[in-house]
């Protein structure tokens, strides 16, 4: 199932935030969106998720214009994994994941055995069975992120949209979560994530798009994107991009850093 964005434009009042963006994420692809704060990443994501509707252009999920889909139908195609935050009330991990099945449950009903088994399935797919009884708010950031991904899997969509999934995680959890995301793309999920870490984007993504001032300034395989010129253009800082291990890894070294 693919997700295409065609000539997407969006403005908050007079301020144009997205100025004609087009790209396609194909099935099984892990697509990373790079861009500085305020580049329009969040707005782009909100449009793709159907949270903002007064845009021009088209967004196609599985070939269907999402403007014509009800929230419930769209929830069967795309799932959202938000940035970490503490909900006002604390729920157990299992209850949290179970909420992903909402689109299957009619409004006057509570989930039954069928939904519960689907939630279990998602939990075991993420390998977090041992967390299921614990309360979500008391987990570490990395564990919370895995729970949110499990919830998206319980939603049984083929498109996953992640808003900075590794932003507030420590080094180890960042790698663990990215490995899981990569694994999901390998299983055929279409994964779109925003990130502030170009090095991780290089290592884990199949494709990278770069957003600046509401325009796409680059779209291609990570090797084409992660250059010092583009980093300078995207973030406005001088970095030396070095290639290691036959270009399997690239590191960005700030020019004003200590040893340069």
């Amino acid at each position: 199932m693919s997700l295409s964005v065609e000539n997407l434009r969006f403005a908050y009042g007079r301020q144009e935030v997205l100025k004609g963006i087009s790209f396609t994420a194909s099935e099984g692809e892990l697509l990373s969106v790079l861009g500085c704060n305020g580049a329009g990443k969040s707005t782009l994501f909100k449009c793709m998720l159907g949270l903002l509707s007064n845009y021009s252009g088209r967004i196609l999920a599985d070939g269907q214009d999402i403007k014509n889909l009800s929230l419930r139908t769209l929830a069967k195609k795309t799932a959202y994994i938000p940035q970490l935050h503490y909900p006002a009330f604390n729920y157990s991990v299992f209850d949290m994941v179970l909420m992903g099945t909402a689109h299957r449950v009619s409004p006057m009903r509570s989930p039954d055995a069928e939904e519960k088994s689907r939630a279990w399935c998602a939990i075991s797919q993420m390998g977090i069975e041992d967390l299921s009884e614990r309360s979500y708010n008391h987990l570490s950031g990395g564990e919370q992120q895995l729970v949110l991904i499990a919830r998206a899997l319980a939603q049984e969509t083929r498109i996953l949209i992640l808003d900075e999934p590794t932003a507030s995680l420590d080094f180890g959890n960042r790698i663990r979560v990215l490995a899981k995301i990569k694994e999901l793309a390998g299983k055929g999920y279409t994964v779109i994530q925003s990130t502030h870490d170009p090095e991780n984007a290089f290592m884990y993504s199949d494709r990278v798009i770069a957003l600046k001032d509401g325009r796409l300034i680059a779209d291609g395989p990570p090797a084409e994107i992660l250059t010092s010129e583009l980093m300078k253009e995207l973030y406005g800082v001088d970095v030396d991009v070095r290639s290691l291990e036959d270009d399997k890894i690239r590191v960005c070294i700030p020019i004003n850093g200590r040893y340069i």
Partner: peptide, 20 residues
């Protein structure tokens, strides 16, 4: 009857909407 849905509402508008 609608009590389970209130759980989802308590997560916040955006999340609840993306869950349908």
């Amino acid at each position: 009857a609608i009590r389970w849905r209130i759980n989802i509402l308590s997560l916040g508008d955006d999340e609840a909407r993306t869950m349908g």
